[in-house]
Simulated scan of single mutants.
Amino acid sequence: MTAHPAPRSDAETFWTARYGDSPIWSGRPNASLVDVLESLVPGPERADAGATATALDLGSGEGGDALWLAAQGWRVTAVDIAPNALDRGRAEAERVGLDDRVRWVQADLATWDTVERFDLVAASFLHSSVSFPRAAVLRRATTFVAPGGHLVVIGHAGSPSWASHGEHEHAEPLVGPEEQVEQLALGDGWTVEVGELRTRHIPAPDGRQATLDDTVVLARRS
């Protein structure tokens, strides 16, 4: 009997088409992620931690954040629904000699679960234009954080200043830092170390200067 691959979900079909046949991102890590996590990454002064410190990148896309984390010394598990995005991340990891520090997992985060616990769980701009239970996924992600570990969530707090009503729609409401913390439902044993609204200056499609507000949350589990 011939085995047939499982049919793609609507979300996998959408994101596979979105990533298409060539890279759509710069390959660089998200600036806010770097800014918030630079003091946490394993370095020479933490050589003992560098050998074992683990990170989970949710919605890793083409791997910009995952590869940056790996370059700092983390052992990274990168999860995304789009196989072509993961293929690009894997190829870049091999090119720069980080293939032994990143494990690439193709899965739908709406249902994906793991018994592993990580020193760092990161979700950068985990938004979707198709149905996606973002709040529930992020609440589940809090259970993936090991004692003493951190959770970082970075997301859009609103549409770009140049966007008209209806543009850049997401499947879930965009929230500020206070509402993001509420959605995480962290409870006892957690400390919110960063809860900020950060404004980025970006070029609009017509070349004019525009702004975009991001929610940045960093929490530590005791």
Rank of each mutant, 00 (worst) to 15 (best):
A91T: 04
A47L: 13
V130L: 11
D57T: 07
A135W: 05
I24R: 07
Q72V: 11
V175Y: 05
A91L: 07
D99S: 09
F132V: 04
R208M: 03
G20V: 10
P173L: 03
A107W: 05
T215P: 02
R18F: 14
D65S: 00
S131A: 14
A136T: 10
G20Y: 10
L37M: 12
G158V: 10
D35A: 15
V216T: 06
I81L: 12
T211C: 00
G158P: 03
G189W: 03
A78C: 14
D119Y: 01
P29H: 11
V137F: 01
L98T: 15
R95S: 02
A204F: 08
R90E: 11
A123T: 14
L86Y: 05
R75A: 08
A17E: 11
D10R: 11
S39I: 02
Q180D: 00
V102K: 02
L69T: 02
A78P: 09
V192Y: 06
G59S: 07
Q106P: 04
E62R: 04
Q209N: 09
R18Q: 14
L174Q: 09
A11F: 02
A85R: 07
A123H: 10
A17L: 08
L126I: 05
V34H: 00
T215L: 07
E94R: 05
A157T: 05
A141G: 11
S22E: 14
T16H: 00
T191C: 01
D206H: 06
E193S: 13
H156E: 13
L120M: 08
S9T: 14
F144N: 04
V152L: 15
R101G: 02
P23R: 03
S60G: 11
S22F: 03
L212K: 06
L197K: 08
A66R: 07
F14Y: 15
P147T: 09
A17P: 01
G61L: 06
S161G: 12
T13G: 11
T199Y: 09
F125T: 09
G166Q: 05
L151N: 13
T16N: 00
L212A: 03
G158M: 06
T114P: 06
E169F: 08
S161Y: 07
W25Q: 13
P44A: 14
T142M: 09
P205T: 04
A93R: 06
N30C: 02
V192E: 02
A47C: 07
R208Y: 00
A171K: 08
G97I: 15
P205G: 06
T52H: 10
S159E: 12
V181E: 05
V152K: 04
P23K: 03
E172C: 01
V36M: 13
R103H: 14
W25N: 10
I154V: 15
S222G: 07
L37P: 06
